[in-house]
Design a protein around this nucleic acid. Sequence first.
DNA 1: CTCATACCCGAGTATTTTAGTCAACTTTAC
DNA 2: GTAAAGTTGACTAAAATACTCGGGTATGAG
Lengths: 155, 155
Amino acid sequence: MKLSTKGRYAVTAMLDLALHSGEGPITLAEVSGRQHISLSYLEQLFARLRKANLVDSIRGPGGGYELKRPATQISVAEVVLAVNEPITATRCNGKADCQGGDICLSHQLWTELSDQIYQFLSGITLHQVIQRDFVQQVAERQNTRFQEEDLIAFR
Amino acid sequence: MKLSTKGRYAVTAMLDLALHSGEGPITLAEVSGRQHISLSYLEQLFARLRKANLVDSIRGPGGGYELKRPATQISVAEVVLAVNEPITATRCNGKADCQGGDICLSHQLWTELSDQIYQFLSGITLHQVIQRDFVQQVAERQNTRFQEEDLIAFR
DNA sequence: CTCATACCCGAGTATTTTAGTCAACTTTAC
DNA sequence: GTAAAGTTGACTAAAATACTCGGGTATGAG
């Protein structure tokens, strides 16, 4: 379990999809506008999310992305795992072959911690996150702000 | 709470000190030999551990480092925090000022996760780790191996 | 039909972090 | 005095991160 801003971006983007589900396909341009993540970077992330079967893509005009499963059935852990490399070749990972055959003293500890993090993030669905008051409020602000920016752009 | 190999190295080194406490000051050269961490890198790490009041240094011949407090009173979390930058200026950290004033959707989630990780690592002392059979065995192997290498080096 | 819209993909790049190295210096035991 | 240790700061190579850029390709609206 690796934790980086990459995973955060992916989760944020997925939450955006979840918040606007039922409105038809969401374009990455919209997500980019609302969440302030660059379009090209989003494309990279969504390529992975698609391969992980977390989103469906609809091409052509009027196209975009939508969640493949309902938000109640997608855990945060899945999203994070989808965008991070499966098993990084950092020393002391999985195969326990750090220190040339021997195992480093803290090895077991990190394995436990990884499990702990995974457990935590698996227990939380996208739906649960967007139900929170806090998220609802931020989302509300983002919507109005985005509409304003939209108007300005069209002038 | 940041998780990197740097923190792992620090914990491994501290466990080494804990395992050899009561034998007087331990030189970084010994730790380097047993844990296969480069001496210069250890110097960097121990500079921070010293500033964090986790180890005492004894200069001059026969000197080295020892734990400032007994291993039962040092948590893994303290060690990790000591070597990682206090609060990295990565977007979405502490001040919640990502997205230019607004807060990103997943912000709250990561705060919770950080707390979770911190709780887990705070609950574990260096002493608890070295009590484990697994660690004892690895340590035993390391001792014999180090002594062999030592002999070879002196030939 | 066609053309703008949107996803798709691979390569390239700037920045940051990691994981060190190197050199010079200080303290202190013998 | 001298050698063993810690102390400090600057420097660097490699990797990961966080992007950008330039082209594709599918497709639906007009």
